[in-house]
Design a protein around this nucleic acid. Sequence first.
DNA 1: GCGACAG
DNA 2: ATCTTGTCGC
Length: 227
Amino acid sequence: MEFNQLHSWRLGYKKAIKVQEALREQLILKRIAGKISTVAGADVSYDKHCDFFFAGVVVYKLGKRLVKIEETTAFGRMRFPYIPGLLSFREAPILLKAFKKLKTDPDVILFDGQGIAHPRHFGLASHMGLILDRRAIGCAKSRLVGEFQCVKNIAGAYSKLFFKDKVVGAALRTKVNTNPIFISPGHKINLTLAIRIALATCDGYRIPEPVRQAHLLVNKARKEQSK
DNA sequence: GCGACAG
DNA sequence: ATCTTGTCGC
């Protein structure tokens, strides 16, 4: 996949926030026409002792059954600390290395983090979506910002996530008796379609398969490296 | 000043 | 995110 860097990753805290505020103006939060037949999931894992990062992307084809069609991994060193709200500055550079190796051009990408459900409406999925110029969905395991009401204990039930009087995402129950996940539009997509894609790619687990498999992939890559 | 806080 | 075995519940 090709992409634009848009800016340097070596920034200070304040400058990073300025970058987010500027880039968020470029986000497209409407559904973009075009069929969706391939869905990618991306995730990152790292070793606490070595400062090594591992990124992975797994691409699935939608159909009667989900079929894995490609996967790539990449690794590098971390150059930015974990600061809530600035996750993309930590994870995006290494994720981009993994996407660069990808031969497939996925129609939509699920990221392990937030989209616009973010203090400045510009989470990891928004940042990556903009750089890759691709539909992107935030698929987080926990909440960063916003409030929501109880979600019915039924697979597929959801409750809108409100932040500053605006709908920025949804708490989505992908499986009964399991905590909801947090879906938010990242780029070139709306919430309704984002939820539909998340549910369509779930396969009996809380986390949609593309992201779940990307998670397993990077953990495996990291363990093999440490040997 | 205090609490909250994606991964 | 990571360090880690058993264990409680559907």
